[in-house]
Every structure is written in C-alpha cells, then in structure tokens.
Amino acid sequence: MKKLHACMAALCLAFTAPISAGAASDGPEVTFGIVPQQSASRLARMWGPFLNELGRQTGATFRFRTAKDIPTFEACLAAGAFDFAYMNPMHYTIFSQEAAYRALAHQQGKRLRGVMVARADADITEISSLDGQVIAFPSPGAFGASILNRASLRQADVSFEPSYVKSHDSVYRAVAAGLMPAGGGVTRTWNALDPDVRAQLQIIFETDGFTPHAVAVHEGVDPVFATGVQTALLGMVTSAPDLVQGIGMKGFVSAEDSDWDDVRALGMARDETGITHKGDIECPSG
C-alpha cells in the first residue's frame, strides 16, 4: 500500500514533530496524528514506543505526527492529512462527516470529564468564585478542557474571559505560576501532570462524563489493513500493557460511530464548538 497523505518535508516540519515510530519494514508507511493536549516532545516519549510496537505487530511503519496547537491539528484533520488519528470526541463527530474518518477504538473503561483547576493555596473552591475572571483553556475546540467547561460556566451564569494557551500542560503551568486564577483540563492529563506542578493545584469542578477520544482511520486507508490495526490495538492491553499504561490508558475497546451520539446530543452548532476549519498553516492532503 502506498504511503497516503505524505507531507512535503519542509512543510511537515512546520506543523508536526519530525519523529518516527516503528522500525523500517516492507509494509505500509502510515501517519498517526495525536491531538496536542501536551507538548510534542512529551507526546513523542509517550506514544513513540507504543507506535513502534503497533508497527511491529502489523508489519507497518507508523510515523508519529502532532501539531503546534489544537487549531492546527484541526486543520490537519479537516484536510485528511493523517492516516490514523487520536482525536477528541467533538473532533470525531465533525470530522467523521467532513473529512471521512471512521472510528476504530476508544479507551476502555473511560468517560471523558473536564476539570477546572485553581492554585491549591487560592481561596477558590467552586466555579461561582470565578465570575468576571480570565480563565485559561487549551484551545476553543478542546472538548473536555474547553467546550464542556465553558458550557458549565455559562450554565452556572458565571461571566468570564477565555485565554487560550495551546495545551493542557500550558493551562496547568499557567495556573500554578499564578498567571491565571483557574484553567480547564481533563482527568487524563491531570493525572499525567508532573507531580510537582499538580501539588500546587486543586480541582474545583468536574463535568459530566462523555465517550472519550476516538482512534479513527481515514477512508483512504486500505480497510483490511485498518482492521488489522484495530485488532492489534485491542490486543495491546495483553501483549504490551506497559506501553498502554505509558500513554495513560488501561486499554482499548472496539468503537462504532454511534458511540459518540452522547456528544451529538449536546446539540452544539458547528460555530459554537470553536473547532476551526483550518489553522494558520494548511496541511497537505496528498
């Protein structure tokens, strides 16, 4: 199978981390995009070994890809620039329609919840205390960290000004440094946070839970190969549990498009989500 959606090297460097996963093989070479909830270097350390093993099991070479921020990642999804992608729930409901991605799996035993954090020594114990404040979020379209938390603040009649700081880790560090009184994240990135930073923070609010991030495949990928990747993903909890734990998960379960109907039931219009059609760098689609 030919390599799909290959980036020209110079442009690829502009919006992805130039990191490879998977040993050279005679099998297909494919890209695997990871939503940039954390820094590119940290995501590469977490996902690189996992993708190496996925490549070993499937005979493919997986190329780790991310973006400098979530809006640019959304541009790449809109362009169909990744063969496989790990994307947030709202991304999936949009780009399964707009860019022909199909769900293969999602995290096992997980409901995605947004959390709001403040400094541990701050006199802030509930979101009503944030009225009139500037609050940090990763990006407009980050589902749990931004969309769910913003909706919860508005439902509580809390006025606020959002400040978008690129990643979940950037939110936590900005709040810990006292640059913002509070910020939004999700339980997975909170649990994966540097313990020294987390010790400076407290969770003051948690949203309801929703179906978590999707691992999805683009329609241009051979369906037989995609099924093989899905099988390997589901088996990683047994074959490589340490690598699954290394990406902050317990395992994967098979997914269907209807699994994200709870997200669709929010009834958010496209322009209400904050998810962009493209970032400031266009991703090549071929």
Rank of each mutant, 00 (worst) to 15 (best):
D257N: 12
G141C: 09
P89M: 00
H5L: 08
V171H: 06
D131V: 01
T211E: 10
S96I: 06
Q200A: 15
A255R: 08
S96G: 11
I19N: 06
E272K: 13
P212R: 09
F50R: 02
Q57H: 14
R154A: 14
I281Y: 14
P138Y: 01
T125I: 06
M249A: 15
A60G: 07
H91K: 08
I147C: 03
A182Q: 03
G183R: 07
M87W: 04
G267A: 15
W190S: 06
A105K: 03
E126F: 09
A182M: 02
L148S: 00
A142W: 07
D259L: 07
A120V: 00
G251I: 13
F64D: 01
M8A: 10
A226P: 02
A9W: 13
L43A: 10
T238L: 04
D262E: 12
G114R: 04
D121A: 06
F210W: 15
V221D: 05
G33K: 01
D208T: 06
M87A: 15
V30S: 00
G286T: 13
W260G: 09
D69N: 14
P223C: 04
E98T: 09
P241N: 13
A136R: 07
S128N: 06
A226N: 10
M236E: 09
A40N: 10
V186C: 15
P212W: 07
L130W: 08
V117M: 09
A118S: 13
K2M: 04
V134P: 00
R119A: 03
L43Q: 12
T93N: 08
H106K: 15
T189K: 04
D196W: 00
G109T: 08
T72Y: 06
K110T: 12
P71Y: 10
F210P: 02
Y101V: 12
D69V: 01
A99T: 14
T66K: 06
Y164H: 10
M268F: 14
F15Q: 13
L112A: 15
S129V: 04
R119W: 07
H218I: 02
T273L: 05
A269C: 06
V158F: 13
M1P: 10
P241F: 15
G267W: 12
A9D: 15
I70N: 11
G114M: 01
G33E: 08
N88A: 07
E282M: 13
L179T: 12
R198I: 03
F225E: 02
V244I: 13
A78N: 11
A17H: 15
G55E: 06
G141A: 10
V35I: 14
A85F: 04
H5M: 10
T238S: 13
K110D: 04
G27H: 04
P89T: 00
G27W: 00
D26P: 05
P241K: 15
M236I: 11
A120Q: 14
F32P: 03
A174E: 11
H213Y: 11
G209S: 00
R150L: 08
Q57N: 15
A156S: 12
C283K: 05
F73C: 05
H218G: 05
R56T: 07
T207S: 12
Q38N: 12
K250V: 12
S170R: 07
A79N: 07
A269V: 07
W47L: 05
A105D: 03
Q108W: 12
T125N: 08
I204F: 03
D169S: 11
R188Q: 13
F95T: 02
P28S: 11
S170D: 15
V197A: 00
I70M: 05
P162T: 10
G185P: 13
A67W: 00
L77S: 02
